[in-house]
């Protein structure tokens, strides 16, 4: 593919992206879509943020973070605590992001020294340790101030989540196409070779890890403002790692479109099956996930590319 082709393609991607965002902006005002669809889309947006956040570390550096729930959960918890202590909700939301960054620096950075399988089990262990601690300290549900429900309608929450999703995609896009992104790819493909070329793996990994945590923390804050009442221990469960992970892997690791596609797929699948099968839908999701890893290691995005190439070669 030559340069003009590439720029034409990314131009097309911007147009398509812009149109999709516009549709989502206009959807609730132009049509009476109802609470159900809006909260479904809300979940979808949160999943986009979380799966992009996971993919930033997992897809671009090849390090599988199994502790994303810790950053999402700390975002949920801290936003709720700040808000209920009288701080402005938007400030609480932002603070949630920074709490996640602080957490990433305190407990996350030591794990950045770990490689491969050690990193994964290290992050999982720390997330579990945090979950158990949080369960001990905040065993009951937490409430936001009563005025919350006057200020925040489902529509406000919808637009906040949409805004965060768009923000996330822009941040990830800028990062991946910067020098950081190139360094990350080099590190993922061969860490030692990248090191010998003067790329500092730790510095770059830490940068993406912090950004990834920040996004997950913000997602947690938005989630708090949506739910109002939260039970901290539920927001720290590994499901909040596993869902985004599955979405990113099914869609396609190391791409921006992948987690988007994966989130659509995951949220729809979850919705369809949870209506009919309850928790059984995880069985089907799990099997699907295994099949994708085994037979489409680069996700649905890859299969789309393969199909397109097949068409091109036919023409």
């Amino acid at each position: 593919m030559n340069e003009t082709d590439k720029s034409r393609q990314s131009f097309l991607a911007y147009i398509v992206g812009g149109v999709v965002v516009l549709i989502f902006i206009l959807l609730p005002v132009s049509m009476n879509v109802g609470r159900y669809v809006l909260s479904l889309l809300f979940t979808f947006f949160i999943y986009i943020v979380l799966s992009q956040s996971w993919n930033l570390v997992g897809g671009y550096t090849g390090q599988f973070n199994l502790g994303l729930a810790a950053y999402f959960g700390s975002g949920v918890l801290s936003c709720s605590i700040f808000y209920s202590s009288g701080i402005n909700p938007i400030l609480s939301l932002l603070a949630a992001g920074f709490v996640a960054i602080a957490l990433a620096c305190i407990i996350g950075l030591p794990t950045m020294r770990l490689r491969g399988v050690y990193f994964s089990i290290g992050t999982l262990a720390l997330a579990e340790a945090l979950r158990l601690t949080v369960t001990n300290l905040w065993p009951t549900s937490l409430y936001v101030p009563a005025t919350h429900y006057e200020r925040f309608t489902i529509l406000t929450n919808y637009y906040m989540a949409l805004g965060l999703a768009v923000f996330t995609i822009i941040v990830v896009h800028l990062m991946v196409n910067s020098r950081i992104g190139m360094a990350l790819t080099a590190i993922r493909d061969d860490e030692d070779a990248a090191k010998s070329m003067g790329v500092s793996p730790t510095k770059h990994k830490v940068t993406v890890f912090v950004v990834s945590s920040f996004l997950a923390g913000l997602a947690g804050g938005v989630f708090t403002l949506f739910r109002g009442v939260i039970t901290p221990t539920f927001q720290f469960t590994p499901e909040w790692t596993f869902g985004p992970l599955v979405a990113a892997c099914i869609g396609g690791l190391g791409t921006i479109v992948g987690p988007l596609l994966g989130s659509v797929f995951f949220v729809i699948l979850q919705e369809i099956f949870s209506q009919t099968l309850g928790k059984m839908h995880f069985i089907i999701t799990g099997i699907l996930f295994i099949l994708v890893i085994l037979f489409l290691p680069r996700g649905l995005v890859q299969s789309a590319t393969t199909i397109r190439q097949l068409f091109k070669s036919k023409l």
Binding site: G62, G116, V117, F242, F282, G286, I287, F289, I293
Partner: peptide
């Protein structure tokens, strides 16, 4: 790495 991802899917199942 893939063995971790796959057995992770196995947990769900």
């Amino acid at each position: 790495g893939n063995s971790m991802l796959i057995t992770f899917g196995l947990i769900l199942v």
